[in-house]
Design a binder for these strands. Structure first.
Length: 852
DNA sequence: TTCTTTCTC
């Protein structure tokens, strides 16, 4: 750090330290939030406010002092005192008083999340600043916001929602008394739209920033720009130790405070050690080389990763000289490209027979590994008496994900073995784990900006993740971590995972930047910790232009402004608007909720076919995953009315938790549409659902929302092949109701998600006609080659007689005119003037098409 | 022939 910077930072911090705590300097806006708005007008009332505030300050302090004497709080206190965070309390408060930005690093178990916000709260209240104190602490996940708030409330001997509360989407527990609020980062980002300067907030803590989630990275850019305008705001960034420096540098070398961790030691074994213990014999993937003394054959795969490649160059015999011959042979045969489930099983067998009691947590990559290992364990009986083990799968989409069994301690003499994805890395914590088996890989999204393609491929985890996985074994007693990859491979792993902002499509983020008026998208994003690729940003901007949210100058259009208030993916937002305008409101709300949240269909391990069949039966002959979602939801609502919710979900492989969230989100969307004038709730649902049972019209609304995600279905004899503009040939995902359909009644599919895994898959789709595209898709462009109409930069071509084309163009023109008027002036009632045009469109949609 | 994980006034 240059001394000049240091001096400037120091000056900034000193000057800002003055304003905190001195009530005459605290912003008048801060008072607004805590006192009735009427009080601020007259100058006389300033005195009243001051005295009222003084009373409140004293009251809060008295209450806090009183609570400290209660037996419960005292018991909590003795626990709190033992946390490492407690030892740095004075140092922390001092650093915070002297610096506007502070980075706190600490390992799991140090108590930073529960103690630091609490220290601030206690300090502010006991210094008679409780009235003006408003602390916000962001969490990346909903569950942690709730559980941390609950924990602190009980440490203070209060009910949740009094001084300490939380706010997550559609769920708030707070009151006028709340001085410390835990919220998800997403909630804070939305709040910034109303309140760009975080008025009235005295302290902001941003937790888990080392995870490098897109929301946290986004928030950090905003905060760095906000600091000069809010000198009285204190910002505390909380990170794991491993990359705290990065954040300190980003904030002009902000001081860093380190808190040591408090977890039990976890011994670490790498593949070479595991092989010595288990004597497992790794067989080469290339059978013809088995037993041969020849050097391992290098993988032919062009996509081989640098980590695996590195190990191929290691001279096994010399590097592992001290290891047994069988271990060296196994290492010789080892290839990092596939997970060896035999090795996993053998490791589990070793733990069961040679290690003490305690649950085992196995990190695998996904559904397939988990399912196969589960089968293997059941068939092979290597782990001893089946009655003495309890093997549980843990995957975000498996129906077991919410089962208590995973958290409960098993009965004595029974060993719990959890086979998990990286959901168990930070989202789900199983306390009694003593042994971790780490395969070293995880499925990870990446974004291929050249092909505008999201990818989901297994790859080596980072050292940071490896450390996090290991830590899962040391929560209740010392543990052991079995790494199923060599130490050399571990040493070659990346320090951290690539930040999410570099791995995801950016349209939602770009819209959010425009919505918060943070300047030009490109220049704003260039200020990020790690700015995303220019092409990725351009793709997002292009998409926003294509759907009509941004104009040529990258300014928000009227449509774009509406999409900002809906805070969903812009395509889904457009679906909502179109559904409300074209009388398909209820289906649009439900389908949008499912797409914005998650698929309510679960993925059971043993009843996959039954689950697929249930989904197919909801779809009927619609050729639409979206209709299946809609019907499943409607069925659930119906079952709920007759109190048969549980059996309905069970029989149809649906997640009640997800359906409930969809129901809540549906209501939120309705309220937002009402806020921006697209729906008048007093008119009742029937005023917006005239075409809700019309499959063609609902499909057309899906098309309007999901465009330009179009697939062309091309007949190839008795089968159909599928193509998209960006990547050419694609496949229908096998879980889609459209998988296995050889001939579709209509020539196009519209989809919301395209992902490259083992192939490029369309995950969800709806079969639509060319009329749907012509009336509700992209702009119509006359073909250069004379007759016909083009769309998607000429990728789609529509031909028909001149008179038909003219009719379509005219109708489309009328529809667009209607739509634009409505979007410019949402309160406008277009039902009578639009009746004729819409009826004509519906008629055309019903006539199907003749060209396919 | 397949299903990492988060999140929104």
């Amino acid at each position: 750090m240059s001394s000049e910077t240091q001096r400037l930072v120091g000056e900034l911090l000193v000057s800002s330290a003055v304003s905190v705590g001195s009530s005459s300097f605290s912003s008048s806006q801060g008072d607004k939030q805590l006192l009735p708005a009427g009080n601020k007008e007259k100058s006389v009332s300033v005195l009243e406010i001051d005295s009222a505030k003084e009373r409140l300050n004293a009251e809060l302090k008295a209450k806090q002092e009183k609570m400290k004497d209660s037996a419960d709080v005292k018991a909590m206190w003795s626990f709190r005192e033992k946390l490492p965070a407690f030892k740095v309390k004075a140092e922390f408060l001092k650093a915070m008083a002297n610096n506007q930005v502070l980075v706190v690093s600490g390992e799991t178990g140090c108590g930073k999340t529960t103690q630091l916000p609490q220290f601030i709260l206690e300090e502010e209240i006991s210094s008679l600043r409780g009235a003006d104190c408003s602390i916000i602490c962001t969490q990346p996940r909903r569950i942690s916001a709730i559980s941390v708030a609950a924990r602190i409330s009980s440490e203070r001997g209060e009910a949740l929602g009094e001084t300490v509360g939380y706010q997550i989407r559609l769920e708030t527990k707070s009151s006028a008394d709340t001085r410390l609020l835990f919220c998800t980062t997403g909630v804070l980002l939305r709040r910034l739209a109303q309140d760009p300067k975080l008025t009235g907030v005295s302290h902001l803590l941003v937790d888990e920033i080392h995870e490098r989630g897109i929301n946290e990275d986004f928030l950090l850019i905003i905060l760095r720009d906000l600091i000069p305008n809010r000198p009285d705001l204190r910002i505390i960034l909380m990170s794991a130790t491993i990359n705290a420096d990065l954040f300190s540098k980003y904030f002009g070398n902000a001081p860093t405070l380190h808190i040591p961790g408090l977890t039990f030691p976890v011994a670490e074994l790498f593949l070479e050690d595991v092989l010595e213990k288990t004597h497992y014999n790794i067989k080469s993937e290339f059978d013809n080389f088995q037993g041969s003394s020849r050097r391992r054959r290098k993988q032919q795969d062009s996509k081989k990763d640098p980590v695996t490649e590195l190990f191929e160059d290691v001279d096994i015999d010399s590097h592992y000289r001290s290891y047994s011959r069988s271990t060296r042979e196994s290492l010789e045969a080892w290839s990092g490209s596939l997970i060896d489930l035999g090795l996993v099983e053998s490791t589990l067998e070793y733990i069961c027979h040679h290690e003490g009691d305690g649950a085992i947590l196995v990190f695998l990559t996904g559904w397939d590994d988990i399912s196969k290992l589960l089968d293997k364990v059941k068939v092979n009986h290597l782990l001893g008496d089946q009655s003495r083990i309890l093997v549980l799968p843990l995957h975000g989409s498996m129906p077991t994900v919410n089962q208590r069994e995973i958290f409960d301690r098993p009965p004595p003499g029974k060993r719990k073995i959890v086979l998990a994805t990286n959901i168990a890395e930070s989202s789900i914590t199983i306390d009694d784990v003593v042994y971790v088996v780490d395969c070293g890989k995880a499925k990870e999204t990446s974004y291929d900006a050249l092909n505008k393609l999201a990818c989901l491929l297994p790859s080596w985890i980072s050292k940071a993740s490896a450390r996090q996985r290991r830590g899962r074994a040391g929560r209740v007693q010392p543990g052991v971590c079995y790494r199923l990859y060599p130490r050399i491979v571990h040493d070659a792993m990346l320090q951290f995972q690539l930040p999410e902002i570099l791995r995801t499509p950016l349209q939602e983020l770009c819209l959010h930047i425009k919505s918060l008026q943070l300047g030009a998208i490109g220049s704003f994003l260039s200020k990020a910790l790690q700015p995303p690729d220019h092409l990725a940003v351009q793709n997002a901007i292009e998409l926003l232009k294509t759907i009509g949210a941004l104009d040529d100058k990258e300014d928000l259009t009227p449509l774009g402004r509406h999409l900002c208030t809906l805070h969903v993916d812009p395509n889904i937002g457009k679906m909502l608007l179109m559904g409300s305008i074209f009388q398909c409101l209820t289906p649009a709300l439900i389908i949008a909720a499912a797409l914005a949240y998650r698929d309510p269909f679960v993925l059971p391990i043993n009843r996959k076919e039954e689950a697929d069949e249930a989904k197919r039966s909801f779809a009927g002959d619609s050729c639409s995953d979206h209709i299946a979602l809609l019907k499943a939801f409607e069925g659930w609502k119906e079952a709920k009315r007759s109190a048969k919710e549980r059996s309905f979900c069970w029989e149809n492989y649906l997640s009640p938790v997800t359906l409930q969230m969809m129901d809540d989100m549906r209501m939120q969307f309705l309220n937002l549409l009402s806020d921006i004038g697209f729906v008048d709730k007093s008119k009742g649902p029937s005023a917006y659902n005239h075409y809700s049972n019309d499959l063609e019209m609902v499909s057309a609304i899906l098309c309007a929302g999901l465009y330009p995600n179009v697939v062309q279905c091309k007949r190839r004899g008795k089968r159909t092949a599928f193509y998209t503009k960006e990547v050419g040939k694609v496949d229908i995902h096998p879980a889609s109701v459209n998988a296995g359909i050889h001939l579709f009644p209509l020539p196009y599919l519209i989809y919301s998600e395209k992902v490259k895994t083992t192939s490029i898959f369309i995950r969800d789709s709806t079969n639509i006609s060319d009329y749907a595209l012509l009336l509700f898709g992209g702009n119509l462009v006359p073909s250069k080659s004379g007759e016909g109409i083009e769309m998607l930069d000429g990728y789609l071509h529509f031909s028909a007689s001149k008179s038909v084309l003219e009719l379509i163009r005219k109708l489309r023109g009328e529809l667009d005119k209607l739509l634009n008027r409505k979007i410019e002036e949402p309160g406008l009632d277009i039902s009578s003037e639009g009746k004729g045009v819409v009826a004509a469109a519906v008629e055309l949609l019903h006539s199907q098409n003749v060209h396919y």
